[in-house]
């Protein structure tokens, strides 16, 4: 399959008064044409920062330390100013986490969607307006012509996210990065937005990176899943593999914390005990070691390499080392119980 995005060894840090926050460490992943890739991980695992790094959208104190991100063969991390802006919004666009704060409160929604077209196309004003209204209709905003002149605060969260999606898709980009587009919405709206995204993706044929901290959300959107923890890739495999043969204790923890349908959602507030590592001083060994039920002495000392658990399925865990007494068997036997 032809790859449109190929990221290698991306490391990004924030420089704060308290020191260097290593938000992303040696991250590698790729997205094929038309593919939907899921990126999953707890809050703070570096999902957003990874993709912000590629688009040069880091806040001032953030810096990409190393790595390459080839987009259609050219390195995004080497692009500056005008070249990079030409990619943003036209070739790669983003839908952000929080629709409440991602729209400018002092501009009408129509203008904000139209802006992408103004920057990237040479269309005339009426053409731009037409296309914008069409797009608003496509994301199922009722009375799109009238709503063109509405202010963001007059829209509900779900509606705003539709506007964001319209904004991201209006230039028909090759790659859409949807950063937890439904996290801030309530459950019924979530389902609608997911459905909309799936339909639009099929209709426009764009590749999608779908970021979420919820595996179940990703499951019916994506073909492949990357699991991130502590700024690193912990496991990568096809969606089926992840669900049927999870090969990393962290992934298993995430799976175990998916609420069953009968269960009430708030029962599982803290599914994996403990909290993510402090990225100011990441532990020298496996970042997951303090919370893992299978921690071995080596896990505290050395960072595990990304090992192949099966063809096309990699896992960053010492249990896959050829020296480990059990070498991967634990996973097959289902011996890793995250809870308890």
């Amino acid at each position: 399959m032809e790859k449109i995005l190929e990221v290698k060894n991306l490391s990004t840090s924030f420089f704060t008064s308290q020191g260097e926050v290593q938000a992303v460490r040696e991250l590698s992943l790729s997205v094929a044409k038309g593919e939907a890739l899921g990126v999953v991980g707890e809050s703070g695992s570096g999902k957003t920062v990874s993709f912000m790094s590629m688009l040069g959208l880091l806040p001032n104190n953030g810096r990409v330390k190393s790595g390459t991100a080839l987009f259609n063969g050219s390195d995004l991390l080497g692009l500056r100013g005008r070249e990079l802006r030409a990619v943003r919004g036209r070739d790669i666009s983003m839908v952000f986490q929080d629709p409440m704060s991602s729209l400018n409160p002092l501009k009408t929604v129509g203008k904000q969607v139209a802006e992408a077209l103004e920057v990237h196309t040479k269309l005339s004003r009426p053409e731009i307006k037409n296309k914008t209204v069409e797009m608003l209709k496509l994301v199922k905003i009722p009375e799109a012509e009238k709503r063109y002149n509405s202010w963001p605060h007059e829209f509900s969260g779900g509606m705003r996210q539709r506007v964001m999606i319209a904004m991201a898709l209006v230039c028909e980009p090759q790659l859409v990065i949807a950063d937890e587009p439904t996290t801030a919405l309530d459950v019924t709206i979530q389902a609608q937005i997911l459905k909309l995204l799936r339909e639009l993706k099929d209709e426009l044929g764009s590749a999608v990176v779908f970021i979420s901290h919820d595996l179940s959300v990703i499951a019916n959107m994506c073909q492949r899943i990357v699991v991130m923890y502590g700024g690193m890739v912990m496991e990568e495999a096809s969606t089926e593999e992840i669900f049927s043969y999870p090969s990393h204790p962290y992934t298993m923890g995430l799976l175990a914390s998916i609420p069953d349908l009968e269960q009430k959602k708030d029962v599982l507030l803290d599914p994996i005990p403990g909290s993510p590592p402090d990225m100011l001083a990441p532990p020298p060994g496996c970042p997951f070691a303090p919370r893992c039920t299978r921690t071995m002495t080596i896990c505290l000392k050395e960072l595990p390499p990304l090992a192949e658990a099966a063809p096309g399925h990699s896992s960053r865990c010492w249990l896959w080392s050829e020296f480990a007494p059990t070498k991967g068997n634990v996973f097959k036997e289902g011996a890793v119980h995250v809870k308890g």
């Binding site: 403990g274 909290s275 402090d278 071995m296 505290l300 010492w318 020296f323 007494p325």
Partner: peptide, 24 residues
């Protein structure tokens, strides 16, 4: 080096140890 069996022993973690690993 990695074939040192001691390295592959399972360790448990107490609350404090977890705190300590997580940061001062």
């Amino acid at each position: 080096m990695l074939d040192n069996a001691l390295l592959w022993e399972k360790v448990g973690h107490s609350e404090e140890a977890m705190e300590e690993i997580a940061g001062v």
